[in-house]
Amino acid sequence: KRYRAVYDYSAADEDEVSFQDGDTIVNVQQIDDGWMYGTVERTGDTGMLPANYVEAI
């Protein structure tokens, strides 16, 4: 699945990823209600991200 960031996010922990509004997130997997795991296409960084900061595309 592919998602697009709708807000900027700065990683708060080493297992999270930072991204900017408009970034595409690929290979996304749902972890639980609030978190997903995926790769930021622009940077190649992979990690956890907050589900409410992205939307499906």
Rank of each mutant, 00 (worst) to 15 (best):
N27F: 10
G34Y: 15
D23F: 02
Y37L: 12
R4W: 06
K1W: 07
D13S: 15
D45I: 11
N27C: 13
R2N: 08
M36E: 02
A5N: 02
D21C: 15
T43I: 01
W35K: 06
T24E: 10
K1T: 12
D33I: 09
Q30V: 13
D21V: 15
V40L: 03
D32L: 11
E14C: 13
V54S: 01
D45R: 12
E14R: 10
R42L: 04
G34F: 15
G47N: 00
T46M: 09
V54W: 01
E55R: 09
V40P: 01
T46C: 09
Y3I: 04
D21Q: 15
M48L: 14
R42S: 07
G47K: 00
I57A: 07
V17Q: 01
F19M: 06
I31Y: 09
D23K: 02
K1P: 13
K1L: 12
E16C: 11
E14Y: 10
N27V: 15
Y53C: 11
D32C: 14
S10K: 13
R2I: 12
R42Q: 06
M36G: 03
R4L: 10
G44I: 02
L49E: 02
N52Y: 10
K1I: 13
N52T: 11
Q29N: 09
A56V: 13
F19G: 01
A12H: 12
D23S: 00
T39S: 05
G22R: 04
D13F: 12
K1M: 12
Y37G: 03
Q20F: 13
D23I: 01
E14N: 11
V54G: 01
V26P: 00
I25F: 11
D33E: 12
D13V: 10
M48I: 10
Y3F: 10
A5Y: 00
M36Y: 14
M36F: 14
E41I: 08
Y7F: 13
I57H: 07
L49F: 15
Y7N: 13
Y7R: 15
S10R: 10
L49D: 01
Q20G: 06
V6L: 15
E55Q: 11
G34I: 14
V6H: 07
I31F: 11
V54E: 00
Q20S: 10
I31W: 10
Y9K: 03
I31Q: 07
V17R: 01
V6N: 09
P50I: 04
E14P: 13
Q30W: 15
I57Y: 09
V17E: 01
T24F: 14
E16T: 08
S18W: 03
D45H: 12
Y37M: 11
G47C: 02
Q29M: 13
E55G: 04
D8F: 07
A56N: 08
